[in-house]
Design a protein around this nucleic acid. Structure first.
Lengths: 181, 181
DNA sequence: TTCGATTAATTAGGAACCTAACTATATATG
DNA sequence: CATATATAGTTAGGTTCCTAATTAATCGAA
């Protein structure tokens, strides 16, 4: 028997349409079971992808968050403020502080006081950081590409469109009380 | 200016095709930028959905994991072993122990020693647990439905198909070393 | 039958991200 | 100008899930 990791088990964890139907019928609700299934599957996929990404990045001594910070720093030509990084990455400034702490400890970025504003600190991609990104790029991107390789070019467009619309709908979970439409 | 929560910012966090292209061209890789974009967007969506789900379930005094455990317990007619729950939820047994600890403390499930096997414990959905599920069902399901309400019935089918195929591709991130196809 | 290996659940400790409170600097207002 | 307010970054502490080690019970084989 193989090891009991989340990636070797016989994905009994995938939610089925039957499950959704039963859950809805249990309380006599007039909800579309397939809509619930879409939500459940997307949650499942997101969670699995998140875990897989952590494993992927750990090959390079990074985490998902730290990689994304380095990538954003590259996009900004090697220099950015922590608050900008936080906004770009969609995480809090507190989280960015933690990411920078480790990246700095590992020599991939460095902090420098801003001359313009004494409150700010500039985060800089070091040469070692740039080298790390360079070295991991081929494997990193080809693995990402392989992940979606079963979709045709056209299907990728469609998927992006549908995913975008569902993503916009996520606010239905967090909006103020009351029942949604 | 509104508060700087992840849900109120002007989603600058959404990865763009231009970004993907630049990242790839920086290292002269022959990878499809749109494929990378699909991967990036799915990661972003998964992370956002995960956070939104935690906010959603916290309205009912639950977390995503604890809700899913209760739901699975319902599917199993109110009774299951921790190891079964772990497999159904796709988490480790250690995690299930923690989920049960809190659910038991809150009176939503109870633990009972198994008579068949001295190592096993049976987890039981209490009346209070069943009531909790009953009470939250209408709002819970209608919010989930609202999330995907912008997709037609047909689009939901297509989305499920494409998502399923990408999900199967996730293993490309975790598979043994070397570059993928 | 008895002793080693397997299995079920738990415990201990770690990683990632969060909120809220704190420090230091900058800005606006009377 | 002095003082209140806002902003940048950090610190402190909490949540969720993980891996590895532990405890207790069962199974299998000499």
């Amino acid at each position: 028997m193989t090891k009991n990791s989340n990636f070797s088990n016989e994905n009994n964890a995938v939610p089925s349409l039957l499950q959704s139907k039963q859950q809805i019928e249990r309380y006599n609700l007039k909800v579309d079971a397939q809509a619930i299934l879409v939500a459940a599957r997307l949650m499942e996929a997101g969670s699995k992808l998140g875990q897989a990404a952590e494993i992927h990045f750990s090959r390079f001594g990074l985490s998902t968050g730290r990689y994304r910070l380095l990538a954003d720093l590259e996009d900004q030509e090697g220099e950015a403020l922590p608050s900008q990084l936080a906004e770009h990455l969609g995480v809090t400034r507190a989280t960015v502080t933690g990411l920078i702490d480790i990246l700095e400890r590992d020599g991939l970025v460095s902090r420098r006081a801003s001359s313009k504003d004494g409150r700010q600190k500039t985060v800089i991609l070091t040469e070692l950081g740039a080298k790390k990104m360079h070295d991991m790029a081929p494997e990193h991107f080809s693995r990402l590409e392989a992940m979606v390789s079963s979709l045709s070019i056209e299907e990728r467009s469609i998927f992006l469109d549908l995913l975008d619309r569902v993503t916009n709908g996520i606010s239905a979970l967090t909006d103020g009380s009351g029942e949604a439409t």
